[in-house]
C-alpha cells in the first residue's frame, strides 16, 4: 500500500517541513516559557559558577587590580595557609558534631511527638519555631544567652555554684557553643521530616511488634530506625549542606574568633573576598566550596525521588 506513493512526491517533502515546523514550534514554545527564568538563572547562577572557576586561576587582590593568570597559585596559597586548614578543621568538626546530634535528637523527638499526648501540638510548636527565626536574630538572642556572668548559660550554671565563662571568647568553648545554638535552631526542622516519615509507615508493623513484646528502645532500634533509613539519608544531606553553609551567626557572635577558633569555610570565604579584598583567593575558596556541595548534592539528587514521598 505504501508503494503507491512515489518516493519523490511533493506531499512527502511537504510533510518533512511540517514536522520540522511542529518540532521547531514546540521548542520555541518551551523556551518561551522558560525564558523568564533563564533571564535570571543564566547571569546569576550559571555564569558565576563558570566565571568563578576561571577567576580562581587569576591573581586579583588590592595590589593587583588588573588580574593576571597564576594557574593554581590561589589554591596553593590557600593550601599553604594555616588559617585555611584551621577553618577546614573547624568546618568538619562543626558538621561532624551538629549533623549526627541534631538528627539523632530529631528522630527521638519525632517518635515522642508522634504519640497521642494531650499537649502534642504545643510540643511540636515549641520544637519547630526556631526554624523560622532569622539566624541573625537567633544569634542576637544567643549572644545574650552566652554573655559572660550575665547570660542565661552562666546564670543557670550559677544555680549549682558560681560560674563565669567567657563562652564565646574561649577557644575551647566557642565551637561547642556555636554547635549548641545550631542544634537548637535546626532540630525541629529535621524532626518534621521524621514525623512525616513516621506517619507514612504502616501501623500494623508496630502493632505486630508490640504483640511480640517489643517496647521502647528495642522497637526504636530494630524497627523505627531501619524503616526510616530513607528519611535519614535525605535529612542527613540537608543537614550536611546547611552545616557547610553556616555563616550568619558568626557575624553576630564571634567574627570567626577568637583567633579563628570558630572560623568556618563560608565566613573565611567572606573574609578573603571582602575583608582582605583578595578576589582571586576568594574564588579559589568558592571553587573548593562548590566541589564540596556538589559532591554532597549529587548523592542527594539520587534521593530526589524519595522527596516526592513527603509531598502529600
Amino acid at each position: 500500500m505504501q508503494l503507491e506513493l512515489p518516493a519523490t512526491s511533493l506531499p512527502s517533502a511537504g510533510l518533512q517541513s511540517l514536522r520540522f515546523r511542529v518540532t521547531a514550534g514546540r521548542f520555541a514554545y518551551g523556551l518561551l516559557l522558560i525564558l523568564p527564568s533563564l533571564v535570571f538563572l543564566l547571569p546569576f547562577t550559571v555564569w558565576p559558577a563558570i566565571k568563578v572557576v576561571v577567576s580562581s586561576l587569576f591573581l586579583a587582590d588590592i595590589a593587583h587590580p588588573q588580574p593576571s593568570f597564576i594557574g593554581l597559585g590561589n589554591f596553593a596559597a590557600e593550601f599553604g595557609n594555616e588559617v585555611f586548614w584551621q577553618v577546614m578543621r573547624n568546618t568538619v568538626l562543626f558538621a561532624g558534631f551538629t549533623v549526627p546530634l541534631s538528627i539523632g535528637l530529631a528522630l527521638l523527638l519525632a517518635v515522642e511527638v508522634n504519640k497521642k499526648l494531650r499537649l502534642v501540638g504545643v510540643f511540636r510548636t515549641a520544637l519547630f519555631y526556631p526554624t523560622i527565626l532569622p539566624t541573625v536574630g537567633a544569634a542576637a538572642i544567643w549572644l545574650f544567652v552566652y554573655a559572660p556572668g550575665l547570660g542565661l548559660a552562666d546564670r543557670f550554671l550559677g544555680l549549682f555554684g558560681s560560674y563565669d565563662h567567657n563562652w564565646l571568647g574561649d577557644p575551647a568553648l566557642v565551637l561547642p557553643a556555636l554547635m549548641v545554638m545550631m542544634i537548637w535552631k535546626q532540630t525541629g526542622y529535621f524532626m518534621v521530616f521524621y514525623l512525616a516519615g513516621l506517619q507514612g509507615l504502616p501501623q500494623e508493623v508496630f502493632e505486630a511488634a508490640a504483640l511480640d513484646g517489643a517496647r521502647g528502645w528495642r522497637m526504636l532500634r530494630s524497627l523505627t530506625i531501619p524503616l526510616l533509613s530513607g528519611t535519614t539519608v535525605f535529612v542527613s544531606t540537608i543537614a550536611l549542606i546547611d552545616s557547610f553553609q553556616t555563616v550568619d551567626q558568626l557575624f553576630i557572635l564571634t567574627q570567626g574568633g577568637p583567633n579563628n577558633a570558630s572560623n568556618l569555610l563560608l565566613f573565611w570565604l567572606y573574609q578573603e573576598g571582602f575583608r582582605n579584598f583578595n578576589f582571586g583567593r576568594a574564588s579559589a575558596v568558592t571553587v573548593i566550596m562548590m566541589a564540596l556541595l556538589l559532591a554532597v548534592s549529587l548523592v542527594n539528587y539520587r534521593q530526589l525521588d524519595r522527596a516526592a514521598h513527603y509531598e502529600s
Binding site: L38, T45, P48, A49, V52, Q245, L294, Y301
Partner: peptide, 24 residues
C-alpha cells in the same frame, strides 16, 4: 538539559556564589 540548570541552582545557593555575583 535546561532542567539540570535549575537543579544546579538548588545545589549552589547564592551565598556560595557571593563573590562572582558581587562583582557582577
Amino acid at each position: 538539559l535546561l532542567f539540570s540548570l535549575f537543579i544546579l541552582q538548588l545545589m549552589l545557593p547564592l551565598t556560595v556564589l557571593a563573590v562572582p555575583n558581587f562583582l557582577t
